[in-house]
Structure formats: structure tokens, C-alpha cells
Design a protein around this nucleic acid. Sequence first.
DNA 1: ATCGCTTTGATAACCACATCTCACA
DNA 2: GCTGTGAGATGTGGTTATCAAAGCG
Length: 375
Amino acid sequence: MLKVSSGEDGYLNNWIHTCDSCQATACTLYCHTDSAYLCHDCDKRIHGDNTTALSHHRVWICDACEAAPAAVTCSADAASLCIECDIQVHSVNPLASRHTRVPIPPIAGQICSSSNVQQDDQLPGTMFDTKNEIAALTMELNLEIDEDETDSWLLLEPGNTDNQTMSGFTYGEQLDEYVDVVDTCTKSFGPEQSSDQQQLVCVNCPEDSGSDSVVPVQTPRSKNQPLQEETQLQKQQFHSTYFNSEQSGSKAAFTNYPSSSLRVPMPMIAPAGIPNSFTGFPTTTTTTTTETFPNPWLLIPLQFTSMNREEKVLRYREKRKSRKFEKKIRYASRKAYAETRPRIKGKFARKTDKGIEDDQMFSKEDNGYGVVPSL
DNA sequence: ATCGCTTTGATAACCACATCTCACA
DNA sequence: GCTGTGAGATGTGGTTATCAAAGCG
């Protein structure tokens, strides 16, 4: 029953259960009704015969442990996971915990496969339609989140050191590590703004409001203006900004723009009730943008050309793939010393004379050389 | 709905000192 | 340009204190 094989990639392929039917290949799903682990072919043979068998409650095997029935699908990890693995995998770090997981419904219909087909690149069939639909759904959801995150990164203004904290969120060097936007973004807002970059930024400049762009104008409102009216106004502004497809030729600012329309309007106003995917900042019906962002510079929409943006998004995603949340040790030697240092309640303590002598003695024993005694 | 208390989780601070960096002779 | 020296900065880990958020009555 238990098998451990080595995969092509050199990693151990820890598929635990073989097919209960043929006992030859790794199982890919679990039938609750039959209480049996089955491979694709056996499932097709057993459950494809009649409609009653087809209605058996079957679920995928966890991609991680390959032992327990999968309970959720995580599109970010491109994997179906059992509850235990889900908890284990997605409790590692904050980013992982943000993965969108969707409960897996029982497999409906008949499997359609050859035995060699991986789960993730299934042939079309009713069985896989279910999974594909889930995957597509979750992928779509994650893409939105991904876009939101990417946009929020790109919107940030790392060079503006005076305003690096907004709504409790601090960005700057930490951001720069993952998004190399400093070179262009910071310059965009400086007095030495280049003409090209000036073109990229459009700040309520009537002369800039060309035919292919709509500059949202924040009209001053009277204080006694009804809230509902304000909200309606914001919605209208939002709509004219985002969905003026006749003029901008694009459905929204979320998408990439052709290079011909460099000056793409960005939202000056976060419409009520609509998540601001650029900033991630909460929007309420009671606060205006100016109230939320007292600094006028923060209202300046940051824009990228389509090439610029695509490139930055790609770089961001590449860096995001490789980013690690673990503490990065730059000097292993310092780590080694820190681990051997005496401590008092976690704090480094002075070395005693005996400790220094011991160190010297061990050093001589280890490599035959003495160490310069520290004072 | 509001308040106060408790619990929980995240994070900064602290410490000594080997090592690194950089200016200077 | 190369080398040596010294001062100051940096980084390292375990524990504790502090704070914010969540939960509950």
C-alpha cells in the first residue's frame, strides 16, 4: 500500500496510496462511497459503467500529502489540499495565508483520462470540468487580487520620504526591494521632472485632457451638500473615469493601455462602495478623498505606459516569486558567534574570563591557531 | 450599541562583541 | 596606487515589554 518513489525532478515523490483496485499506479481520487483510493483508469472503469456509480461521492487526493482526500483548491499554489495540509501550508507566512482557497465539491461525472495524465493538465471531460471551473474561478479571483496587489505596489511612491506612512502602512526601502520603481517614480514627482514623465502624469490639467483621456475633476462641494448627492457625484466621476470606453478605448484603468494613449486617467476619487484596487485603502461614504489624503501629492495619479507597467509588473512578479519572509542571514560568522554568546534573559552578556579562556582553548584545539584575545 | 476586561498575536527593544566599512596616513 | 591602522557602524539571537486587535460578557 505504501510506496515512496523518486520523481523525475529528484525530489521524493511521496505518493502514499496506490490504487486500491489495480494496486499498480498512484491513486488520484478517493471514493467515499466505496471507501477506496482509485487511479484515473480504475475510476473510469468502475464509475463509468453506470449512472449510479457515477453518483458516488468522489474527491481528489491532496496534492501535498497525496494521502488524504482534498478539501480545498488553492489556485495560488495550483494545488488541491486536504484540511491538514491546507492549514500547514497556509500558516507558514502572511502571504500564504492570503491565498484564496475554494472548497472542492464532489467530483461529478466520469473521469476522462489516460493513466499518465497529471491532474493539473487534464483532458476535457465532465469530471475535470468541475475542477477546471473551480480552478478558473479561483484563478480569476486570485488574478483580481494579484492585480490589486500589483497595482497597489506600483502606485506607491517610495521616493516621497515625507509621506511614507499612510494609513499605518509604511513603504519605502522594503518596497524597493521588490519593486524597482524608484528610478522613475521618484523623478516623476520631483522638480526636475522630465518632460516625458510629465506626460505620464496628468494632474487636473485642462490642457492635458486630450481626446483620449478623461481627467477627473474634483469639484468643490458645499458643506451642506447631501451625502447621497456626494456619493452619487463620486460614482458619476468614477464612472466617467473608468468606463468612458468610447473615449479611452479601454474598459478600465486596471488594464494595460496601448502606447498611443499614454496619459491614462487614474482615479482621483475612490468611489463609495467600490474597492479601490489601486490603493487598497478603505473607502467610506463619509470621507472624501481629500480628507483621507490630506497631502495633495498623494492625489496625483501615478501612471505608467503600457510597456512600462508591463515591465514593472513582470519584474514585481518575478521578485515576488523569489521573495522570502525568513530572516536573511548576511554574515554566517556573526550568527555563529551570536549563538555561542552567553545570554542573560535573552540579552547578550559579557563573556566571563573563563569563557574567554575556553574560547581560546577550543580555538587552538580546533585549528591549531590562537585567536587574538578580545578586550 | 457601548464599555471594560482578557486573550492573543505581532513586533520593537535590549544586550555584547566580532566583523565590516571607510577615511586617513 | 598600495598597505596598514583605527574609529565607527553593522549584524547577530533569545527573551521581554509593549501595543493593537479580537473576543467576550
